[in-house]
């Protein structure tokens, strides 16, 4: 294995770990707001690492640019959609979980 392959391997695995953490957060966290934290942050980082790992295997610079473009679009989408879901939840009177509450 070349150094590039090893680096790509590590980046891809790191990405998968973040996706896994995001899913665990989704399952464990107590309300929609905390779950949004988990998904918006961990999954985006996961996608970022997967993108970087694949970038090292990209067959051409054009494909590499396309990967970066996809990632930036996904980032923008998550940021806006995450904010809108949280905002709508609050408008609809969903009360945030407090640390004394039962899960």
């Amino acid at each position: 294995m070349t150094t590039t392959e090893i680096a790509s391997f590590i980046l891809l695995l790191t990405g998968a770990v973040f996706f896994f953490a995001g899913t665990v957060g989704l399952l464990r966290f107590p309300d929609v707001y905390t779950r949004l934290h988990a998904l918006a942050k961990a999954d985006n980082l996961g996608l970022g690492f997967i993108m970087l790992g694949l970038l090292l295997q990209a067959p051409s610079p054009a494909t590499a640019l396309k990967l970066v473009l996809i990632w930036l679009l996904a980032l923008a989408a998550s940021a806006t959609v995450g904010f809108l879901i949280a905002r709508r939840a609050r408008q609809n009177g969903i009360v945030p979980w407090q640390s004394g509450d039962r899960r």
Partner: peptide, 8 residues
């Protein structure tokens, strides 16, 4: 949240 899941 499904919308976010598919996006990432």
């Amino acid at each position: 949240l499904a919308a976010l899941l598919f996006g990432t």
